[in-house]
Design a protein around this nucleic acid. Structure first.
Lengths: 211, 211
DNA sequence: TCCTGTGAATTAGTTCACAGCG
DNA sequence: CGCTGTGAACTAATTCACAGGA
């Protein structure tokens, strides 16, 4: 069950396949070909089969994949079999959007705490979660047994906060702050930078061959 | 000014380099080596030099790059020399976060309109922008001369909205809806899927070699 | 000497194409 | 037959390594 070193691009596609498998399941389909899945996910059938082949062979030749079984297997591969306890650092509007985002809880990511350093925000209640003081970060991480942190702060305080999170035992961080974080071996960081996404669009616009 | 096909990964790094160059500029540094830039951006000096080399040679051997000149050049390459007019489709909390996000306007992305189909949201004012009725989408796109749309809707209405946007002349779309959008040649789509990001973290956690 | 710019080498990722099983 | 699973071929991206200019 542990082939070594799977490309990030493959893992991302698996997550996307899962989304469409659930949709097919919901529609009552119980079998799906690599071709049909590829069409939905915006890739090729060979890519789908190759991605899945890293983890075993789940299809039936001549028939395709069992939608339910493959979805289960992908959830297992992606580590979505249990619920994760998540803390959000920073109580700005993006944090608010994440707290409410249904896609997270549907996938087992439970937001257990939100912290900020601004006294004007501390004490506010968002979707049943009270914004707490970042000064108490370590105690909150321990109390909620948090495994994943989502960092939604400006750039400057980000590294110091990550150091505290890591010291408190957090080993996975989704980082929205526009800095390269330094973490010890064994801690995973995923960066999301919304401005960069728009800038790649800008690049595409600027270099488009006029039709 | 149009070299061959540049990899998306390269364009993303250029945007990241620009961010750190501006930081260095702000600190009063006026020269920077590929090594120092790579450290900040989380890559290697060879990668930095290779990325830049696709567009020309801007450095001085033995010295490094002129911070100001390189930043200017990157802004030009990325097409950030002028302001873009942006519409946001969907007035949920994520839309609210994007409207307020300083990183966009700092880079010249001006949010000119927000639309939704929910009468309860239409008419609300966000940061000087009034949420309008999506029924008037085409008129609003024309009125504001919008070039870029940010789609922040659920999956189901996304494709129909994109068809209307494209017909109205929008040629660049940042898509947060979890669907693969179909667009004609000449229209660029960038997908952002926050759940996928968390799921790749989950994968990393599940497959981590215990220390 | 220092650090860029860049071909060459290497590694990673995708697509092809077909054998083989249901 | 139809569609998977997978080596082999190909294409893309990264890293190496060094010549050469400031």
């Amino acid at each position: 069950m542990l082939p070594r070193k799977i490309a990030d691009s493959t893992v991302r596609r698996l997550a996307i396949y899962l989304r469409f498998l659930e949709e097919f399941q919901h529609q009552g389909r119980d079998t799906i070909s690599s071709e049909a899945l590829a069409n939905r996910a915006g890739t090729t059938s060979a890519q789908v089969r190759k991605d899945l082949s890293f983890f075993g062979s789940f299809g039936k030749r001549g028939l395709g994949y069992d939608v339910h079984a493959l979805a289960d297997r992908l959830r297992e591969i992606l580590g979505l079999g249990h619920r994760y306890r998540v803390i959000i650092i920073g109580a700005g509007r993006l944090a608010g959007a994440l707290v409410q985002y249904a896609g997270f809880s549907a996938r087992g990511f439970e937001i257990k705490a939100v912290v900020d350093r601004d006294p004007a925000k501390i004490g506010h209640v968002w979707d049943e979660i009270t914004v707490e003081d970042v000064a108490d970060l370590e105690a909150i991480v321990a109390r909620e047994a948090v495994e994943i942190a989502i960092l939604v702060t400006p750039a400057d305080p980000a590294q110091a906060l990550v150091d505290r999170l890591v010291a408190a035992g957090v080993t996975a961080i989704l980082n929205f702050a526009p800095v390269q974080l330094h973490v010890p071996e064994g801690v995973d960081v995923k960066n999301v930078n919304l401005a960069v996404e728009l800038e790649t669009l800008s690049y595409a616009l600027a270099h488009r061959v006029p039709r």
